[in-house]
Design a protein around this nucleic acid. Structure first.
Length: 431
DNA sequence: TCGGTGTTGACAAA
DNA sequence: TTTGTCAACACCGA
C-alpha cells in the first residue's frame, strides 16, 4: 500500500467512525481527483498506464462536480462562521520558513473561486492555452492560472474546474486540446495520480518498478548550492530564489532547475531535489512532484536524455534583457544584458561598474555546463544500457520459466553502486 | 519485429 | 519565424 492509498483509508476510517457516533450516513465519493485511479488501473488490466495517451484512452466521460449536477448532495463549502482559530505556520511545523510580503497567493476557497473565475472569464485565453508555450520568466503576470495550490489543498474542486472549462469550450468555436490545453493540464494531474496510486515505492528509485536505476551522486555541497541559489548560473539561481520567496514558479522554470540538478549538470539524485520542492513549493503534491522529478531526470516517463535545458540560453530565449533575473537576484541588477546570463564572462571593469564582482558578490559557475552535461549524458547512457541488459536477462529467465536461484536474483537495483557512506558530511543549513 | 509517436531542447539553416 | 538535424530511447500497435 502506498501513501495515497493509506491516506485515503485512514481518512475514510476516521470520518466513518466520527459520523457513526453522530448517527450520520457517510458517502465518500472520488472528489480530490476527477476519476478513480483504482478503476482506471482495473480497466488497464491491473497496471497503471504509463503514457498520457494510453491514460486518455482509458478514461470515459468525467462525473459531474458534487453539488452541481448531483442534486442529492449539497455543495461542499467551508463554514467560516464559528471562529475556529487558524493554525499558524509554526503550529504546522513550518516555523522556520519566513514568509515574504510579496507572496502573491492568498489561501481559501473564496480566493480559489475568484481566481478560477478570473482566469475563465478570458475565453480567448482559455481557448488558446498551450502549456509548453508559456513564458517561465513572466512573474508580474504569470502565464498560467496558478490554481495548483488551490487544487492541492482542496480549496478548488478539480471537477468544478473541469466543468467550467467545458462550458467555455462549448461557447468558443476553436480551442486547444489535451495534452496542451487547460483541460489537458487537469488530465495530467489525473494521469500522475493514477500512476502514483498503482506503483509500489513510487517515491524512491530503488524497488520502484517504473524507475530507471541510475547511479546518482550524493554530493551535499552541490545540492546545497543548487537549493540556495548559489550555482553561479543566474537563470537557475533566480528560479530557486523565486521558489524560496513565493513558493511557486512556472512549470518550465521547474523543469530547468530539475534538469540542472539531475541529468543536465550536477547529477544529484532526483529524490534530493524532490525533497526540496516538497518542502518549499506551496502547491507541492506527492503524486505530481515525484512524477515530474522522475520525468525530468529521465528516470521514468521520459527518456530523451540528450535534450538538456541550457542554464544559459533557456531563460535568455524568453527574457533576453534579464528582467526576471534582475528582479530575483538584485546583486546582478546593473549587469549589462550581454552578460546577465553569463556574468563570469564580463570583463572586470564591467563587473566593477555593475558593482558585482564574480567570485565575491556572486559565485563563479559551480560547473562548466558543456563538460558537465556531456558527462551526465555518458553516465545516463551507460546506466540505460545496464538497465536494458538486466531487463532482458530477467525476461529471459521468465520466458524459460527457470526457477530463481541466487545467481539469477540480480535485479536493476544492483546497477547502483552505493557511494561510500557519509564521505562528505557537510551539514546542510536549515531551510 | 518494426515503424510511428512521445506536452514542453539546442542549434543551425532557410 | 519556421523547419531540419542531432542521436537515439521506450512504448505501443500492427
Amino acid at each position: 500500500m502506498n501513501l495515497i492509498q493509506s491516506h485515503a483509508q485512514k481518512r475514510d476510517g476516521f470520518v466513518k467512525e466520527f459520523a457513526l457516533k453522530l448517527g450520520v450516513d457517510v458517502f465518500t465519493p472520488i472528489s480530490h481527483t476527477i476519476f478513480s485511479p483504482e478503476e482506471i488501473i482495473k480497466k488497464n488490466g491491473g497496471k497503471p498506464p504509463l503514457t498520457y495517451q494510453s491514460f486518455i484512452k482509458l478514461i470515459g466521460l468525467p462525473p459531474l462536480p458534487l453539488g452541481n449536477g448531483s442534486p442529492s448532495i449539497p455543495p461542499v463549502g467551508i463554514d467560516n462562521s464559528n471562529d475556529l482559530p487558524i493554525p499558524t505556520l509554526t503550529d504546522l511545523g513550518f516555523g522556520d520558513v519566513s514568509q515574504e510580503e510579496c507572496n502573491p497567493f492568498i489561501g481559501g476557497e473564496t480566493e480559489a473561486l475568484k481566481r478560477m473565475d478570473a482566469s475563465i472569464q478570458d475565453q480567448k485565453w482559455v481557448a488558446a492555452f498551450e502549456k509548453p508555450k508559456g513564458d517561465p520568466t513572466a512573474f508580474l503576470k504569470p502565464a498560467t492560472t496558478v490554481l495548483s495550490p488551490y487544487l492541492k489543498f482542496g480549496c478548488l474542486s478539480s471537477r468544478l474546474f473541469y466543468q467550467r472549462l467545458q462550458e467555455v469550450y462549448r461557447k468558443v468555436k476553436k480551442h486547444t486540446e489535451p495534452p496542451v490545453s487547460l483541460e489537458g493540464q487537469l488530465l495530467w494531474r489525473e494521469f500522475f495520480y493514477t500512476v502514483a496510486y498503482g506503483t509500489p515505492k513510487f517515491d524512491q528509485m530503488e524497488g520502484n518498478p517504473i524507475c530507471k536505476q541510475i547511479p546518482w551522486n550524493d554530493d551535499d555541497s552541490l545540492l546545497s548550492a543548487w537549493r540556495d541559489g548559489q550555482t553561479g548560473y543566474p537563470w537557475i539561481d533566480a528560479v530557486m530564489v523565486q521558489l524560496r520567496k513565493w513558493g511557486w514558479m512556472h512549470h518550465l522554470a521547474r523543469h530547468a532547475v530539475a534538469c540542472f540538478l539531475t541529468r543536465g549538470d550536477l547529477f544529484v539524485h532526483w529524490e534530493k531535489g524532490r525533497d526540496v520542492f516538497d518542502r518549499l513549493l506551496i502547491d507541492s503534491d506527492w503524486a505530481i512532484n515525484n512524477s515530474n522529478w522522475m520525468w525530468l531526470s529521465c528516470s521514468a516517463f521520459f527518456s530523451q536524455y540528450h535534450r538538456i535545458y541550457s542554464p544559459i540560453s533557456f531563460g535568455k530565449k524568453y527574457d533576453p534583457d534579464g528582467k526576471y533575473v534582475r528582479y530575483f537576484l538584485p546583486v546582478l541588477k546593473d549587469m549589462p544584458k550581454e552578460y546577465i546570463y553569463e556574468p563570469w564572462t564580463a570583463p572586470i571593469d564591467v563587473q566593477r561598474k555593475a558593482k558585482c564582482i564574480i567570485g565575491k558578490d556572486y559565485p563563479e559557475p559551480l560547473v562548466s555546463h558543456l563538460g558537465a552535461s556531456k558527462n551526465c549524458k555518458e553516465k545516463i547512457a551507460a546506466a540505460y544500457a545496464l538497465n536494458k541488459q538486466i531487463k532482458g536477462e530477467r525476461n529471459q529467465v521468465q520466458l524459460q520459466g527457470v526457477k530463481k536461484n541466487s545467481s539469477d536474483s540480480r535485479n536493476t537495483d544492483d546497477v547502483i553502486k552505493q557511494p561510500p557512506k557519509k564521505l562528505r558530511q557537510k551539514k546542510l543549513t536549515s531551510y
